[in-house]
Design a protein around this nucleic acid. Structure first.
Lengths: 215, 215
DNA sequence: GTCTATAGGCTGATAGAC
DNA sequence: GTCTATCAGCCTATAGAC
């Protein structure tokens, strides 16, 4: 945009990319500015220059990652399909998201476990939006009669929980399963996504015996 | 056991207890020996004296916690009930475990996310034992005809995942739900456990249309 | 067994040269 | 914009007094 020695954006992007990789793998404290700068092929002074410090770099990564994720989930929110199909779609997109941006779920789980000590309040709306999406979707299904009466919040944590856990614990799963069964018996992410879809669809389905009034 | 100035076991226990609390809340690096010692009402030299260092204290906490957890799950493994009831029982006991020893799931998820950098290989057998318990249980159900044909490993990660996520993210959930709905709309753990039980039971149930040969 | 004092290493931020 | 050099602060481990 203005005159520049190398390319302002290039350094910025390299730092965010290196940060995403290292923050997710090592956590906020474990990923030192030194390591991040080295991986971005620059120096740690650039982190202060471009972002104002380590914490702000961290937050910018989460903020921009969440914005992108929200955009990818938008279609599911706008869809006019029946609830059970939308739920399958949500799970599929969520799984793709986790594979396309593996750093996001990992960074978020780390934060959630600790009560969000490095979280910028600006991402809260995005988190609540995902929750609202599932809630609407479940309420639609109950209304349409395809789902049994169930608390959307519980469904939300069930789905998000199993998916987040699966995708964030890949490092250890790989290590243990590989050490004990050197054959290489690891789980295919696609297969897990399909499992959750089936589990969910059948597990929420309304049964003939269900009455509307059931707490 | 032998002559002692105060009580050897007392200091040891205090350090383990303080360590469990702080390691789970702050992570391995975040929980400094200084903080742990202060909370245990002693000094950091005691950590080296009793355990040989910070890492060994950490591992002793996980090792003893896991041993206790495994003992509590033993009854579920030995039970001769039908598979669907055993599965409900497993989920219930797992939930009680997470509430009774909240530091355990949190420490384990932290490790799993990072690939287990501070894990002693000695706990691997305990982890695999839990996995084996679920596997046997699911295979029993498929054999008995109450469960549809399903990969036990996928079931395992589904259950453990949703439970671990729920119980480990309580800190952030509390914070967000409390900030946005000051009414105090938080989720009752018992209710979530019941939800997983129902979800699981119905989601795995064999449907009339299921054939035995299905991958 | 317990404690204080300290050694030695690593951290994030930044001043100042280019 | 980029980089090197440096500073103050914090960490774990431990020597040595009691």
């Amino acid at each position: 945009m203005a005159k520049r020695q190398h390319d302002t954006e290039a350094t910025r992007d390299a730092l965010q990319s290196a940060g995403a990789e290292l923050f997710s793998r090592l956590g906020f404290e474990g990923a030192t500015v030194e390591k991040i700068a080295r991986r971005a092929r620059t120096n740690k002074a650039m982190i202060s220059y471009h972002f104002g410090g380590k914490k702000q770099l961290y937050q910018s990564i989460l903020l921009e990652g969440f914005a992108a994720a929200r955009a990818e989930l938008k279609d599911v929110g706008d869809s006019s399909l029946p609830a059970d199909l939308r739920l399958r779609e949500f799970i599929r997109v969520f799984g793709e998201l986790a594979q396309h941006r593996p750093y996001l779920p990992v960074m978020m789980v780390r934060e959630a476990i600790s009560g969000g000590p490095h979280l910028d309040q600006k991402i809260f709306p995005s988190m609540v939006a995902v929750l609202g999406l599932v809630r609407d979707l479940v309420e639609q299904g109950v209304r349409e009669g395809t789902f049994r009466p169930v608390d959307p919040l519980l469904v939300h944590f069930g789905i998000i929980g199993s998916m987040m856990f699966f995708f964030t614990t890949e490092p250890l799963r790989r290590r243990i399963l590989a050490e004990r069964f050197p054959g290489g018996e690891t789980i295919d992410p696609q297969e897990f996504v399909r499992h959750v879809q089936d589990w969910m669809t059948q597990g929420l389905a309304r049964r003939p015996s269900d009455s509307k009034s059931r707490s």
